[in-house]
Write a protein that binds this DNA or RNA. Structure first.
Length: 259
DNA sequence: ATGCCTAATGCAATTAGA
């Protein structure tokens, strides 16, 4: 079974790209971020016609996350990250799909740092750490996938020295990611490729993709019982080269069937 | 090395992204 995550950067604006990628890559489960569409404008019919059941949490203009599946309809287990009833951003949705708890998240960008947006990012991260620990404690197989807006290490950005004050790479952000992993999560992509330069995002301008000047900020985290089934993990760079595409590329993991 | 591009909103110019 393949589970993918893809920041589509506008699910309606990029719908042709998304549908083409679904048809060509045929992932079993897909976590989407940055729908940039209100709840009622999610392209439900087009996605169903492509063979996928879906749940989504939309929002006008910004954010928005979804879970797609062609291996049984996702059964929603959570909508919104717990811990702050005043948080109105649509950045987290979670479902039981084909024997796995799957979470699709869009962690706040946090720039500029310092500032209120950065404070919101850190609070959101701490809430995620609390909730992730609860998920682990259930002992269930869990996959947390999405745009974390964090380069975990210096290997995950071309010129780390230029990013030290940035909300995507600041020490406290990397520390939060490391604390999350230390709970017992496996960073699937880095586990399969321990030493490679891997990026999942390239800015649009100045031929950043062609020059491979990117960031690794989209991650798939596996709970221990899922990590035991990890077969492969890759970035699918193909759709990043298409016309009118997202600035992110999909990331996927391949899992062995449960023995 | 600074959004140099792009989407959404709404119809110009602003906000946000990373």
């Amino acid at each position: 079974m393949r589970i993918a995550t893809y920041n589509v950067n506008g699910v309606n604006g990029r719908l042709p790209v998304l549908l083409r990628w679904l048809a060509e890559a045929q992932p079993h489960i897909v976590c989407l971020q940055e729908l940039k569409a209100p709840q009622e404008r999610f392209p439900e019919n087009a996605i169903r016609d492509a063979g996928y059941d879906a749940i989504w949490h939309g929002q006008k203009a910004w954010n928005g996350v979804a879970i797609l599946s062609r291996v049984g309809a996702p059964v929603e287990t959570r909508r919104g990250l717990p811990g702050d009833p005043d948080d109105v951003h649509s950045r987290y949705v979670e479902a039981a799909v084909n024997g796995v708890i799957v979470a699709s998240l869009y962690l706040p960008n946090g720039n500029p740092r310092p500032g209120p947006k950065f404070d919101y990012k850190m609070r959101w991260f701490e809430r995620l750490i609390v909730h992730a620990a609860e998920l682990l404690a259930t002992g269930m197989p869990v996959v947390i996938a999405g745009d974390f807006n964090v380069m975990p290490t210096e290997r995950d950005v071309r010129r780390p020295e230029r990013w030290l004050d940035d909300a995507l790479f600041a020490p406290e952000v990397r520390d939060a990611y490391a604390r999350l992993l230390r709970q017992g999560w496996t960073d699937a992509l880095r586990t399969i490729h321990p030493d490679e330069t891997i990026y999942t995002f390239w800015k649009y301008f100045r031929g950043a993709f062609e020059r491979n000047d990117g960031l690794r900020i989209d991650h798939i985290l596996l709970s221990p019982s899922v990590a035991d089934r990890l077969k492969d993990a890759q970035v699918d760079r193909t759709p990043r080269g298409w016309d009118k595409t997202s600035d992110h590329a999909p990331v996927w993991v391949s899992l062995r069937d449960k023995s």
